[in-house]
Every structure is written in structure tokens, then in C-alpha cells.
Nucleic acid binder design. Structure first.
Lengths: 252, 252
DNA sequence: GCTTGACTCTGACGTAACGGGAGACTGGAG
DNA sequence: CTCCAGTCTCCCGTTACGTCAGAGTCAAGC
């Protein structure tokens, strides 16, 4: 069983021109020709094309691919293993980039400027080991921001003003609680943590306790998020963080 | 605060030539020049470069990026949302490719040939909705195949022969159990399911009950995997599948 | 004030991986 | 026998830079 060039192109999702090119440079020369010069690709050719496509997807140049595939002692299984590893690395890199975008969105929402390093560190050389895939999960997958985008795009100026007013009111109340000397795990503080969560749920996206605790950690970990809360009242960031944690534990 | 071209190049992980190029085609022209003609990039330029890098990573051409970025009414937040969505799609696609590679590895291990469609379907147009991210989890993340690769690379010819002998012995025993008319959830059948799991753990990778049940489903879902077991004895695939399920339930 | 080495400037040509024709031949359906 | 889609080889075009070349710039050190 063998296929002619157009069929192969369709199957593999490439153009015939690409296959001509691969033949020209000797990367993939069909193992047979008909008497009239038509190219015929067999199973082995398809397998090679499959490997080529994976390595291309991974960003290798055709020259590099030719070297890799013609390496003696590297069989199909070895290539699959290698591709699996490289794809996994790419995935980790992508997750890192998604997190970076989420971070940038959150920063922008609060009106914080990114440092030049932060803008680009995700594009730098990547060490897969240092990356914690779980961080990704904190956001509850990928829907939160989609939902947020869908909702906020509809908001009018009055909506934003109303939101701002609500937030300020909330700020006054939590400051009052702190001033009253109440603990961060007092019912009053926890109630305000709960309101913080519900406010996000109402205005932006369904905010689970898990997501909220993720936010609380981020407020603490990043001095600029911290600054926005500290500006309202010194100590508020830690207080809010603890209240969120206490509330999350109590409610679940 | 503004930066000169080399600093920007370092920060963003591109070459100065790339920045010259972006300037030439009007994609990113620094907002200022010194009196001696040196380019000076400010914060806004960096933000634009950040967007450019994300869109490039996503495979857009420079011309497309110019259009997107100069679209009126698209602010930074809109770009971040768009990038987030596109990155998520890419991630789903990558996961699909990883699964396809794993499938190919499993197929190869058992000596099954892939159909041309299977070789390339993962490269086709991708509908993100149809993809089930959980399938990915069945393999217990990404370590199983790494481990398998690490171990099998050390194996000698005798190891492989020993493994083969073990497998054949296991095959004879499970056939005997079927012939004896025992049920798939009989202790004897479950014991052999357990041996199946331990054999994989010993020879390839730490095989959890979760992974094993994933394998059992794959044996049933794919007629060619099925064929390898049916060749030993008709009905074996279903029998083994049920035994694995019963054993997994019983042990956890 | 002068040198020096790292950095920057503007051309201009080179390259990888195809895209998109032109013009001629092939091959199966009617 | 005729068509029309598919295939062949040749060849020039394009994108996103890489790679010099030759000249000017800048901060540091003597």
C-alpha cells in the first residue's frame, strides 16, 4: 500500500509544495517512483513524516531534524520518548506563560506596573524543574478569566463606579474592625473576607475559596499588591490574608 | 526611565537586529531618539514589545501583530485576555499531542501499526472543546514514560527475553483460569490482574491502579490492542479488562 | 585631552522554509 | 477520445530575521 503526494499532503496536513521541498533537500524522499515519475510514499515514509512533523512543531530546523532522524541507533521508540519529553517541557513553559499573563492581568486590574524583568522573564531560558505546575491549578483552570472578560466587557461607567463605591465601603469596614482590635479569625473579620470573595464572584468570576486563598498569597508575596492594601491601612494585607485563610478553613 | 537597544534586547530575550527590524517595518519604533540618533525605549515601548513577543510565540506574523496591536479600542487588558485564551488553546493542543505520542508508544510497545489517520490527526485543525483534559491525567502526569525510558534503555537482550517469558507464562495462566470457567472477579483472576500491574511496575514504570484501569480501557477501545489479546485467546480482552477493574476496586 | 573597548548606527546581502505561479505531462471517468 | 484534476520540474518571491561592513558614540582609564 502506498500513497501519492496529494493524499499524503492531505493526511499529514501539509501542502504538496512542502513535500516537494522535503524531497529536494533529501529530508523525505519517497521510497519509490512510478514509471512516469510520480512519487509514491509507503508506511515507512509516513512514519518518517510523522516524526518530522513532531520535531517541526517543537521548533527544530529541517537540517536538525535530518540529523536527528538519521542518527544511527535511534529507533522510532527513542524518537517518541524524546518527543514526549520535549512536548512536556513545552507544556510546562506554556503553563508558565499562562500564569505570567494571569499575573499581568491581575496587576493591571489593580493598577500596578510590571517591572521590565517581569514582562519578559517568561521568555527567557526555561528550567522545567523550577516550575510548579500546581500554581496553575490555583486559578481553577482557565475559565475564571474568560468569565471575567465576558462580564466586564458589558460594564458601564456606572457599574464601575458602583463597584468602586462598594470596595471603598468594604475598605472602611475592615479598617474599623482592625481599629476595634478584633482578631483576623474573629467572626467579623471572616465575614469581610467572605464579602471579599463574593464581591469578586459578583463582579468578575466565580471565586472559590481555593482561588481566593491563592489571591491572598499573591497579595502577600508581591510587594506591589501589598502596597495597594497597605495604603488603605498598614497591616491590612496580613490581616486580610489571615482572615481569608480562617474563613476558607471554617467554611469548607 | 528609558533603555537603549542592547538593554532592551537583553531584557526581552531578542537580538538587537530583531529590534532594528521591528523599527524598520514600523512595528515597534522607539518613542524617542537621542541627539546622536540612539534609540530610547520607554515603558510603553516595552509593553508593546511584550505583546509582540506573546503574539509571536503564538505564531502570528509580524504583519498580523501590527494589525492587532493597532486595532483601535483594543487595550492592554484585551490583549492579555486574548493571549490567555490562545495560550490555553495551545496548551490543550499540546496535551493532545502528548497523548498521541503516548498512544504511539504504547502501540509500538505491543507491536501495533498506526493507521495513517492516527499518525497525523493530532496535527489537524483543533477544536478545543472536544478535548478532555482529564485523559491526560490518566497517565499520572508525565513521569511514567520518562521512567520507562530510563529503565528500558538499560535492558539487555536477556532482560527482554526474561520479560517475554514472564509474559507468556502469565498468558498461559490467565487462559487456564478462563478455561476453568472462573469469573473475572474471582480471586484467581484478580490476582493475575494484579500481576499484570506489578509486571508493568517492575519492567516499565510505577503503574498505579488508576493508570492500569486507563490501560484496560484502551485495550478495549482500540481494536488493535484488543487483537493482540484476542490472539492469545478469544474473550481475553474483556476478561482482563473486567479483572483489572475488579482488582482495582477491591484494592483501593 | 587622548585612547580604548564596548555599544550603536545605517546599509546591504544571505538564509530557511516554504508560497505561488508557469508550462508540460498523466491518468482515470465518461 | 476528451476532460479535468493531479503531478512533474523550474524558478522567482516572501518572511523574519542573521551576518558582516564601515563609521560614529560613549564612558572609563591613563
Amino acid at each position: 500500500m502506498s500513497y501519492q503526494i496529494g493524499k499524503v499532503a492531505d493526511l499529514a496536513g501539509v501542502t504538496v509544495r512542502t513535500l516537494y521541498h522535503y524531497d529536494e533537500i533529501g529530508l523525505l524522499s519517497p521510497s519509490e517512483r512510478t514509471s512516469t515519475g510520480y512519487r509514491r510514499y509507503d508506511e515507512a515514509d509516513l512514519e518518517r513524516l510523522q516524526q518530522i512533523r513532531y520535531y517541526r512543531e517543537l521548533g527544530f530546523s529541517l537540517e536538525e531534524i535530518a540529523e536527528i532522524l538519521d542518527e544511527p541507533g535511534a529507533d522510532a521508540a527513542a524518537h517518541l520518548r524524546r518527543q514526549h519529553e520535549l512536548l512536556s517541557e513545552r507544556k510546562a513553559r506554556l503553563e508558565k506563560m499562562i500564569n505570567a499573563v494571569e499575573f499581568a492581568m491581575e496587576a493591571q486590574k489593580v493598577g500596578i506596573k510590571l517591572t521590565p524583568q517581569e514582562r519578559f522573564e517568561v521568555f527567557g531560558d526555561f528550567d522545567p524543574d523550577q516550575y510548579d505546575a500546581e500554581a496553575q491549578e490555583r486559578w481553577g483552570g482557565t475559565d475564571a478569566y474568560k468569565e471575567s472578560a465576558r462580564r466586564t466587557s458589558q460594564y458601564t461607567k456606572e457599574d464601575w463606579q458602583k463597584m468602586k463605591a462598594e470596595n471603598e465601603e468594604w475598605g472602611r469596614r475592615i479598617v474599623a474592625i482592625m481599629d476595634a482590635g478584633l482578631a483576623s479569625d474573629s467572626p467579623e473579620a471572616m465575614e469581610l473576607a467572605e464579602e471579599h470573595r463574593q464581591s469578586i464572584s459578583r463582579w468578575f468570576y466565580e471565586c472559590s475559596y481555593e482561588i481566593q486563598t491563592g489571591l491572598a498569597e499573591m497579595y502577600l508575596a508581591d510587594e506591589r499588591f501589598m502596597a495597594t492594601y497597605e495604603a488603605i491601612k498598614p497591616g491590612l494585607t496580613v490581616f486580610l490574608h489571615d482572615a481569608i485563610m480562617a474563613n476558607a478553613v471554617a467554611r469548607s
